[in-house]
Design a protein around this nucleic acid. Structure first.
Lengths: 127, 127
DNA sequence: CAGCATCCCGAGGGATACTG
DNA sequence: CAGTATCCCTCGGGATGCTG
């Protein structure tokens, strides 16, 4: 990575860079929020909806499918009536979330610094 | 984060969640590539272009501006002729790249596992 | 309850041409 | 060399309505 091994810009064409292939998925608008929730414990569809109130059920479904497809979460259907579905983070998902949560924590911690940098930049721009 | 402190889904409305505010920027298509390059050493505009061959100069300029605005990189102009500009990662940028590079490394390491998961999913889908 | 189908919009981003 | 300026188009994602 750092030495240009995995996704060397000069070697890969963008469309099949393995790092991008993975990153693009978790870079979606809702992925990290869902992962954050399921990192704690399994949740049902309606529970997740309540936890991420601004998400549409369309995007919740789609994001869950994408995360499931990439192997980060499992979907288990209980054939009750009415049906109930539980989503649970897989081992792969947890192993991803370990480093990912560090970045999220960094973002939370350094948000003030970033906001300050933006203010400084915008200030110097209004020439 | 994990305990719902920083970006508690039930508390924040999406549009001013501090974590998203930071993450959305570095989740852009080219940001990580540029950060990866500048984490190693400073580079000039044309050098970066060569390192990320698929980027348009429009997006290179724009991504550099965004990263600069958020305080991750510095821009230094040398008034030579023709002009030369050097981009250099700041301390804030390096402190971000530390955890970020872990995620990128994870992505590189686990790309096969993710591809396998996708294959399994797609297989089971073509009912 | 947990979806799927449809319509629709705006932002992100590509291609091309021009400049200090 | 290091940009800026336009045009254009894809596609992520919102809103709404319907189903097993």
């Amino acid at each position: 990575m750092l030495n240009g091994e995995e996704c060397d810009m000069s070697g890969w064409d963008m469309n099949n860079c393995p790092v991008r292939d993975v990153i693009d998925r978790i870079a979606g608008k809702w992925s990290t929020l869902i992962l954050e929730a399921l990192a704690q414990r399994p949740y049902r569809f309606s529970e997740l909806r309540r936890m991420v109130p601004d998400i549409s059920q369309r995007m919740l479904t789609q994001t869950l499918r994408d995360l499931q497809r990439d192997g980060y979460i499992d979907r288990q259907v209980f054939p009750t009536k009415p049906p109930s579905v539980e989503y649970r983070m897989t081992e792969l998902g947890h192993s991803l979330f370990a480093p990912l949560s560090r970045v999220l924590a960094w973002a939370a911690d350094n948000h003030p610094a970033v906001k300050a940098a933006r203010a400084r930049y915008d200030e110097s721009e209004l020439a």
